[in-house]
Write a protein that binds this DNA or RNA. Structure first.
Lengths: 189, 189
DNA sequence: GGCGCTTTTTGCCAAATGGCAAATGATGTC
DNA sequence: GACATCATTTGCCATTTGGCAAAAAGCGCC
């Protein structure tokens, strides 16, 4: 919980009472490796915060290939915004790649907090637009680089992920095949 | 101006008086083909709205290649958020690809509106997060597709752009060379 | 240690894309 | 129309990456 408080206080100030209101709504949940936090076709009902573990957001393209859109590490929010905000079915899976510990807010509680805590919505907006900007900034440059450069970029962005997850997920994030990535890795070291 | 009003009313309600306050702050500006709306290294000072023409956001990678991050068509906001919000130098150029007509708000006026019009900040937040989500959704899938598929995706996303701008900008958006794109185009039709 | 399972690496060849330079086409100007 | 300028296409060949299948490595379990 402390981690979450620290996280949100980066984006604005809240007093002790407000922080307690927020804390009271949070539930700690364990997600086993390979479990889904939310699934394509369903409407996202929760906001999560990763305390421990790695999660990825992925989907299947029209050739049936599995594509990883991004990874979410410790101390980040995880929420399928489009689905959560607009109450429409999600198009993506949120998948625990390792055993995870999460803080969870139900939609109802989350909205209640937005209405009762002054300034909370401003903080949430800041958090979310920063996260969205980050997604653009991380994913966009991959388009114009070759596979080796992409892998190096991945290492820079997610230095703590590479040794904790299978190579196939990294390949599906970078848009290269597993074999190519294996060869690239060999050539680098 | 009417276009802008229509645009913002999609995201929330404002009364006549509020709309007039907003209108009064807007200046109409013409930007010649190849002029810059804002430049890398400078701090973004304006929010724009494209009334007519096409703008692109681009930068140079560490190999000196010019990369187009996205295009902005008529009836969309143009603002370098990261720079505007945080008052830090931008890393990108905003470049008029055709002659453009824009509505411009200065930073001072924009902030004044945010403070005086109740509900305006909620609308702005909605507009901006939608735009950010759109950028992720458009750019991200390119990573995992081959060049032909990327071009077809471009055509779907920007059906009204292809005939109005040079091929080289499209190539720099898709992360392929101009020659490859030329060949791809030939094979499709 | 041996077995079954999954992940990663390799080999072989085909296909896609890049690099570079020249040819062609398009457009505006005098 | 001739010319200059810029955008696009094409040719040729090198390099990168993919597809597929087999081999090797890693890991948990008995």
């Amino acid at each position: 919980m402390k981690e979450f408080i620290t996280y949100i206080l980066q984006f604005g100030n809240l007093n002790q009472q407000q922080l307690e209101l927020i804390s009271n709504k949070a539930t700690e949940v364990n997600l086993q490796k390979d479990a889904y936090f939310s699934e394509a076709g369903k409407i996202a009902q929760q906001v999560g915060f990763v305390l421990d573990g790695i999660v990825r957001v992925c989907y299947y393209n029209n050739k049936g290939e599995e594509i990883t859109k991004y990874f979410i590490e410790e101390n980040n929010l995880v929420v399928d915004l489009e689905s959560f905000d607009n109450e429409i079915p999600s198009s993506a899976y949120v998948h625990a790649i390792t055993d995870c510990k999460l803080l969870i807010f139900s939609k109802k509680d989350w909205n209640e907090l937005l209405h009762t805590i002054i300034g909370w919505d401003a903080i949430v907006h800041k958090i979310i637009s920063k996260a969205l900007r980050q997604k653009v900034e991380r994913r966009s440059p991959l388009v114009s680089e070759d596979a080796t450069t992409r892998y190096l970029m991945f290492l820079e962005i997610y230095p703590n992920v590479v040794n904790r997850i299978p190579l196939s997920y990294i390949a599906s994030y970078l848009g290269v095949t597993q074999s190519s990535l294996s060869r690239i890795r060999k050539n680098i070291s």
